[in-house]
Amino acid sequence: MRSRVTSISITRVEGAPVDGITERVSSWAQAAAVLRRWSESVARDGGYDKCKFAIEWANGATYRGRYDLVNWRDVEPDLARHVRELAYFYTSRQAPKHMSPAVYGAFLEMHQTKVITLQYEKLLDSNDLGVDCHPPIQGKEVESESVGRFRYANERERQANA
């Protein structure tokens, strides 16, 4: 069983009328409600305000980051989804829609480290991120004109350790 969220602290770094205000909640749903309320004052169609957040789980794990808050009419605020998408990205589970497999693979080849991958794997395995299961690691081989032939980093590491 994954560790439950015990505390989420969200600070609005930009944007009137609540710039600098911090709210502390104890669930993903409460965090979404805070962000939804704050998103009312964000300009539509491309505007965003920065928020900082810190999450704590019952097992002592912590995660800190930045959330770009947009108007809820453009994108429904969801902090859990934001954290999951970052974890999926760095563990080779999900490429953003705007990246081709070759570009995604090239990015991971240049920026992904074993430490980052292992930290996100541990986050996914040990802590509640608002869903029951996560997508599998993408292990297919891709070819990129700029970097040649490669496999997603996690697939290569998995084969080396097999």
Score class of each variant (00 low, 15 high):
Met110Tyr: 12
Phe107Trp: 10
Gln94Phe: 02
Leu123Cys: 00
Met99Asp: 13
Thr91Leu: 01
Ala87Ile: 01
Lys97Gln: 11
Gln119Arg: 11
Val115Asn: 10
Ala87Cys: 04
Asn127Arg: 04
Lys97Ser: 15
Val103Gln: 10
Phe107Ala: 04
Met99Gln: 06
Met99Trp: 13
Leu123Lys: 00
Val103Ala: 11
Phe89Tyr: 12
His111Asn: 15
Thr91Trp: 00
Leu118Asn: 10
Glu109Gly: 10
Val103Lys: 13
Ser126Asn: 05
Glu121Gly: 03
Ser126Trp: 05
Tyr104Met: 07
Leu118Gly: 06
Asp125Ile: 07
Thr91Ala: 09
Met110Ala: 15
Arg93Pro: 03
Ser92Arg: 06
Leu123Ile: 01
Thr91Arg: 01
Thr117Ile: 09
Met110Arg: 15
Glu109Leu: 09
Val115Gly: 07
Leu123Ala: 01
Ile116Asn: 11
Tyr90Ile: 05
Gly105Lys: 00
Ser92Thr: 04
His98Asn: 13
Pro96Leu: 08
Thr91Lys: 03
Tyr120Ser: 03
Thr117His: 15
Ala102Asp: 12
Ala87Leu: 01
Ala106His: 10
Ala106Gly: 12
Tyr120Trp: 05
Arg93Ile: 07
Ser100His: 12
Tyr104Val: 01
Met110Asn: 15
Glu121Gln: 14
Ser126His: 03
Gln94Asp: 04
Arg93Trp: 06
Arg93Asp: 08
Leu124Pro: 01
His98Thr: 10
Met99Ser: 08
Tyr90Ala: 07
Met110His: 15
Met99Lys: 05
Ser126Thr: 09
Ser100Glu: 08
Leu108Ser: 09
Asp125Leu: 05
Thr117Ser: 15
Ala102Gly: 09
His111Trp: 11
